[in-house]
Simulated scan of single mutants.
Amino acid sequence: MGIRLFVEVLDHAPDALTWRERHVLSVLAETARDDTRKCWPGVEDDPAIAHRMRLPARSSRYEVLQALRSKGVLETVSAGRRGNRAVYRIVELSTEQGPETSDPNSEKGSGVSGPKESERVREPRTQSTPQGPETSDPKPEKGSGNHVNRVREPRTPTPQETLKEEKELPPARADVEQVCQHLADRVADNGSKRPTITAKWRTQARLLIDEDGRTVDQILRAIDWCQDSTFWRSNVMSMPKLREKYDVLRLKAMEERERAAPRPGAGPSQPPSRRLTPAEVLAQAAAELDERDRLATAHARQEGAH
């Protein structure tokens, strides 16, 4: 267990990491060793680590690991191959202090030492005049530290960063995740490329349940019906399209059931009539003639008896 690495990630993780990437890096640091900084082999497939990451999908875990590698906080020690698990290493995040710089105004060997190291580190990085009234920079730059009373404000995230954070929201509801996973599975079962479950998918699934009042069972049956249809399976391949076409799919399914159900009072369904062959027609006519001859003979006998 890497307690030192875990604290290092909490204190020195780069600001460029998203909150989900920072959380995954903290989980990796907890499983790594402090001396080697190497994570446990096969962390991307460990069920306990996946639960701690709050990333049930394997593709989501690989996506975050790739982002951490691209941002320079995680490196691959050995790639995963058949029979071998991938091993990752957390790079050093804390910046080490450089060599102490001597005071240019002090004479070498004078025996007069400068301020202590702790005092030099805590010295505020501001420019101010030691005497006289405070002079302000006529053109101060925002966050430059040229003004003694200026306080650096926290940076406001850009719209692109905010949109990226929204796209990386983890699944928060089991019912939403269930319908999204079912639609993705059925699309893949039909031979198409498995779609990626995005934040837009989960938003539309949540609205379909909460705003439109559809139950999970109704949504699952609608997914099965449209993916079994040769026409609708190519027109409904995402959760936004399913919500858009849900009422159309429901009406089409009802129409199909009504056509298949027998009409009231119609009695049992009869097989369709078949056209007789010429031989069957002749045989039927001969049978009718024989029946007529039999009836005529029986009638004549009755007349003779009287």
Rank of each mutant, 00 (worst) to 15 (best):
M1F: 05
M1R: 06
I3L: 08
V7M: 09
V7E: 11
V7L: 11
E8G: 03
A13R: 09
P14R: 06
R20P: 01
R20Q: 12
H23I: 08
V24N: 02
R33L: 06
R33N: 05
C39K: 00
W40Q: 14
W40V: 13
E44S: 11
D46Y: 03
P47R: 12
A48C: 05
H51V: 11
H51S: 11
S60T: 01
L65E: 00
A67S: 11
L68K: 03
K71I: 05
E75H: 08
T76W: 05
V77A: 04
V77S: 04
A79G: 07
G80L: 02
G83I: 05
R85L: 14
A86D: 01
V87R: 12
V87Y: 06
Y88V: 06
Y88F: 14
R89K: 15
I90M: 13
V91C: 14
E92V: 13
S94E: 15
E96D: 11
G98A: 11
E100Q: 12
T101K: 14
T101N: 12
S102C: 10
S102P: 11
S106Y: 04
S110D: 02
P115Y: 10
E117K: 15
E119C: 06
R120W: 11
V121M: 15
S128W: 11
T129E: 09
Q131M: 09
Q131C: 09
G132W: 02
D137H: 06
P138Q: 00
E141S: 02
N146F: 03
V151P: 01
V151T: 14
P154L: 07
T156K: 11
T158S: 13
K164A: 15
P170G: 04
R173H: 14
Q178C: 14
Q181Y: 08
Q181W: 08
V187M: 07
S192T: 10
A205G: 06
I223W: 00
S229T: 04
R233Q: 14
S234G: 10
V236M: 07
V236H: 07
M237H: 11
S238E: 10
M239W: 11
E244R: 07
D247W: 12
L249F: 08
R250M: 12
M254V: 10
R257H: 01
R257G: 01
R259Y: 04
A260N: 10
A261E: 07
R263T: 04
G267Y: 03
P268V: 08
R274G: 03
L276G: 13
V281F: 07
A283R: 09
A287T: 08
E291N: 15
R294V: 05
L295H: 15
L295M: 15
R301V: 01
